[in-house]
Simulated assay, not measured.
Amino acid sequence: MNTVYSFTIYNSTAQLPTNWDDLAVSTIFLSKKYLEVLEKSSPDNMTCHFIGIYDGTALVGIALSQFLNLNLLQSFGERDTWVKTTIRNLIFGKFASHVLVIGNNMLTGQNSFAFSNSVNPAKALLTLRAATTQLKKNFKSTGVTIHITTYKDFNQEEIKGFDIPEFKKEYLFSTQPNMVFAINENWKSEQDYIDSLSKKYRDQYKRARKKAVEIEKKKLHLDDIIALEDTIYDLYLHVATNAPFNTFFLPKNHFRIFKEIFKDKFLFYGYFIDGKLIGFNTLIKNGKVMDTYFLGYDDSIQREKMLYLNMLYDMIAYSINKNFKEIIFARTALEIKSSVGAKPIKMYGLMTHSSRLVNIFLPRIFKYLEPETVWQQRNPFK
């Protein structure tokens, strides 16, 4: 029998079916708890919707969509040259300020959707596409025209699912790679990791640790995060505004809300000198995978104390000690992440523009939407 799937678009987690989490097993980032974090503390320029895919009355698929209004951003990133930034701002203002993402623009990896094992994957994707069309109509009825629709982030194997006629006209693009650190099953401690490094990178490790000898690292609890919220946000903003490109900024209460909802699955580490918070990083336990999340630091101290590199080593040490299989280091700072042992996984997405004319030029325009990063891959192991 040729069954047809249906979909329901939900505006809040309170509306989600009780068995939603039965499908959110591949990633914590589709779970009700995480969607609640987004609901309570997503960026000001972001609106989230949750999509259920049904076979009759049975829930067989779940998905996340994020609408981004880039006109509400003060800055897309300050680091690039004035000319490049001006051109990019012009392109966004005129052609690309309303973006509908099927997936999660705040994370790296396939956190877009999950289907049950019984589902026909191609049919489920077509239903997701129909839900996307409906979302665009819903926005249109409120006076908002979606300029760009994009499905992200998929590795080489995952993107093959979209190789069906209905997606043929979409622009296939590749973004910066996802930096993934595989933990050797023979490593039982940080020392095992250090011993596996070549002399050059063992020396790098020792140098970084020596530089940070006066820094005190503390695991922060909810009360600490609340007490230090202003400083935390300043440190986060410093890093975020100096990134080459941004499509959102977190609200000030984001880390507090995350800790309230996720408790011990959300780790927040503060770095202090003489009792003053000078940096922090965050981690999320996602099954056997450790996902690195947002961080912040005082740049002058970061350079002098090699703070960022020390944070990477700390994340590796913790993940080895707690028997995680891999660490998702995500995008940005590709070279330094490869210097500690992370490997690049190429990521793909699909994109289409509401204007047929603009669609023709998408490959050219994309260069300004996703600035290319030139970097050298390192291999620190013997």
Rank of each mutant, 00 (worst) to 15 (best):
N45V: 02
I194W: 07
Y205H: 12
M351F: 00
H238C: 09
S198D: 11
D203S: 14
P363G: 14
S198L: 06
K382Q: 10
L100P: 00
N186Y: 10
S300C: 05
W82T: 14
I102C: 00
S118I: 12
P177V: 03
T85H: 07
F255H: 02
G143E: 14
I273H: 08
N286P: 07
K322Y: 15
E214Y: 04
K305P: 03
F95T: 13
N111H: 04
N89H: 07
F7H: 02
S41F: 11
T352S: 00
H49T: 03
S189A: 11
Y205I: 10
S75G: 12
S118E: 15
F255L: 03
A24G: 07
L135P: 00
E216T: 09
K94I: 15
T27S: 10
L228G: 02
V144T: 04
Q204M: 11
I28C: 13
S118C: 14
R364Y: 09
W375C: 03
S42N: 15
F361A: 14
R331H: 06
V144D: 03
I328C: 14
T241Q: 10
K337F: 11
S118H: 12
I365F: 09
L125H: 02
I316P: 08
T145L: 13
K123E: 02
K160S: 11
F92R: 05
Y297V: 04
Y313L: 11
A330M: 08
A124N: 01
K259S: 10
H98I: 01
D223C: 08
L350C: 04
Y233V: 07
S354C: 10
K210E: 06
D223G: 10
S75M: 10
P251C: 13
K263I: 12
L128A: 00
E370D: 05
F324W: 09
I9T: 02
F115A: 01
Y5K: 03
E372P: 04
V180T: 13
E260Q: 08
I278L: 02
F113I: 02
F139C: 01
D274N: 14
S189C: 11
N45G: 05
M311D: 09
G56L: 06
K94Y: 14
K140C: 03
Q191C: 12
F76Q: 07
K136L: 05
M179L: 14
F249D: 05
P371M: 08
K263C: 10
S198W: 05
T57E: 15
R88I: 06
T282C: 09
L135H: 01
I232H: 01
T18A: 12
L350W: 00
R356K: 15
Y348F: 05
K123P: 02
S196P: 08
N246H: 09
V101P: 00
K288T: 07
F173G: 01
